[in-house]
Amino acid sequence: MIFFKCSDVADKISDIIDERASVVARMRFHSHLMICANCRRYFEQFKRVKELAGKVSPDDLPEDFDHVMGFVMNEIDKKNV
């Protein structure tokens, strides 16, 4: 198989994003994108959603962990007594 079909591109996107695809697969992937607006769009959306998913967390950690921490340390203290 020399040329990637659109469905091949869709299958390979995560390997491309995670830099796991072979040089040949990368070439076939990007060659296809040059001639296919739908796959370009799909690839851009995929990358963007992945990037946004990675940004969801930082301000998202529970502020108050003391309650859980206190409970667990209490158990630990009990055993240590």
Binding site: S57, L61, F65, M73, I76, D77, N80
Partner: peptide
């Protein structure tokens, strides 16, 4: 060994992410 400092450290380091 049950070292309290080690447990405190472990919990404060990973606890909030585990809870999240």
């Amino acid at each position: 060994a049950g070292t309290a400092a080690a447990w405190t450290q472990l919990l404060s380091h990973h606890g909030p992410s585990l809870l999240a």
